[in-house]
Design a binder for these strands. Structure first.
Lengths: 329, 329
DNA sequence: CTGTTAGCGCATTCAT
DNA sequence: ATGAATGCGCTAACAG
């Protein structure tokens, strides 16, 4: 492999001259720059990234850490991150956090391979996030609340969203409300439950424990939880699924049992994933401003990298997407 | 930031000793290893990744290059890549190729930031792929055919898949067949067209140019192409959409015009994406072995990295997923 | 504008 | 088992 040394030699200039020329420094004459560039091309020279990073002590890239690269993670969110990163001249890489402390994510979090990170990965421990965030290495968490000098938090207003969802169900005539929850330790899930219960209280509806099921945020979980619900003697007339995947699983369960939505029961989801407009009936849900969340998170990274002082917590509003699964017409 | 030097000092050992201890060398006594590890923990020491990579001239990670990180890229494929990479003790990062030669992808391809790459990104030029692949840096391309000593190619058998799709349409009674194509320069698309035409030939069905529309592999493209098709005087009785997204767009167009599937027209897609079972009617399509493709591609990378001599081209079979969009019952 | 030089942090000899 | 020394490839300060 040709190194910059070879390029310099071939171009007949000093090592540093070659370096300057290749890095678009303005202290190099056009003529010599041309010469250097030509030599580089001739030798098929490519700089060694790690060496460059090492010397500069920065990488010009940020990482987006996802719990599962292959999961149905929010493509809009990524879009937001990507757009902002690109427009700041930064590179973006996505890495996954499966594998615990040996995961790629942890490696990138600790080993100075990137300049900042955005975390949306429940399986990264708070400790690791806390330890990794430092001056010059800001972290934005999207899926938990965490306090640290270089940790920032952007969240979607789960409470308000869940409240709206529940309220909508009530306004459509539901009086007996069930909640299908995600993993109990999920931050988002907790907040959504909070919003749900707040609405019940406000509208003076009693909450029943038998109508608080756990669905693990997965389609299968939603399916199982719904079957459990059906198996119990009394069916609620409205269900708030803490995410869309579970709602989709639930729809399948209802369909199998001949229970029709929205005639027999009203359901509403959360997230507004891709599939929701294709379900039968189309799923009413709470839309998260995912693009905005990604864009904001990335903005924060750069602000901190530029030494600005900023707030540590941000909350983004949701909106209700009215389709047919919760409408009594 | 603590460096390994600090760790050594704190542990009261030599620099090299600390290095050995931290890298699990077997020439270190358990006692001193403990001591070193403790010192590292106490100082919150984290090795500097780029420095390590630089010295070792390898990174232990491979890159998966996607044309758009936020796109609906194949989650199963990623899963396959991820599984194999992990089981080989390698890290995986995903990076996008938007932005041409300034893209993250190109940076990772050229600058020794990874040890190998899998490309599924039409906007990476052949030239770049060819230039980047070298001994010690194998590249597997999934979306084109490319010849090079360190370039490998795994493809899904598009021709056979398209042939089956078309044949199925014919077997279901279709006689007037249309093809909605993706981008003309797409390798996959070309092959699918080839399979389509081969089937027409074999079954003695004439191909009409007016029934070869372009849909760009997008939902909107499929929608537009289908409207074009409808606008023409004569409707075919079967359509092969070169991918599912376009088929979904097409279904929308038909629905708007009151043309029902499969009664009025038979349609079939290609890919078997997530949504297909939720469309109305569920979309019959050709399933690609995406997980296998990802896993195989990754396997190849490691074989080459281990110095094995392997074939340069691989083809994986598809299968027909029978649902209701192409069945006359 | 150019050349010389000194590390960036680490892994790896080679001597002890 | 250890310590000293070397250099991976590159950048940037400095002196010309």
């Amino acid at each position: 492999m040709a190194t910059i040394k070879d390029v310099a030699k071939k171009a007949g200039v000093a090592l540093s001259t070659a370096s300057y020329a290749l890095n678009n420094s303005n202290k190099i004459s056009e003529a010599t720059r041309k010469k250097v560039e030509e030599a580089a091309r001739a030798l098929n020279y490519k700089k060694n990234g790690p060496a460059s990073d090492l010397k500069r002590t920065k990488t010009n890239t940020i990482a987006l850490i996802l719990s599962d690269l292959s999961g149905p993670f929010y493509s809009e969110l990524i879009q937001g991150v990507q757009d902002v990163a690109m427009s700041n001249g930064y590179d973006l890489i996505a890495c996954n956090s499966i594998g615990g402390n040996d995961s790629t994510a942890v490696k990138f979090l600790r080993e100075k391979r990137v300049d900042g990170a955005i975390i949306l990965a429940h399986n990264i421990s708070d400790t690791i996030a806390l330890e990794s965030a430092k001056n010059g290495f800001p972290i934005v968490v999207l899926d938990r609340e965490l306090e640290g000098e270089f940790i920032f938090h952007v969240e979607v207003d789960n409470i308000q969203g869940a409240f709206s969802a529940t309220e909508y169900l009530i306004q459509q005539g539901a009086e007996k409300l069930a909640f299908v929850s995600g993993p109990v330790n999920s931050f988002d899930n907790k907040r959504r439950l909070e919003g749900f219960e707040k609405a019940l209280e406000e509208y003076n509806i009693s909450k029943k424990n038998k109508w608080k099921l756990s669905g693990d945020f997965t389609r299968e979980g939603g399916y199982r939880a719904t079957n459990l619900l059906i198996a119990q003697q009394e069916l609620p007339d409205g269900i708030f699924y803490a995410n869309d995947e579970m709602a989709i699983g639930g729809m399948k369960a209802f369909e199998e049992k001949g229970i029709t939505i929205p005639n027999d029961i009203l359901i509403i989801g959360f997230d507004d994933i891709n599939l929701t407009e294709f379900t039968n009936p189309p799923l009413t849900t709470i839309r998260q401003p995912k693009y905005d969340a990604g864009a904001l998170a990335t903005h924060l990274i750069f602000q901190v990298l530029h030494g600005e002082e900023i707030k540590h917590h941000y909350s983004l509003p949701t909106s209700l997407i009215e389709r047919n699964s919760a409408k009594l017409t």
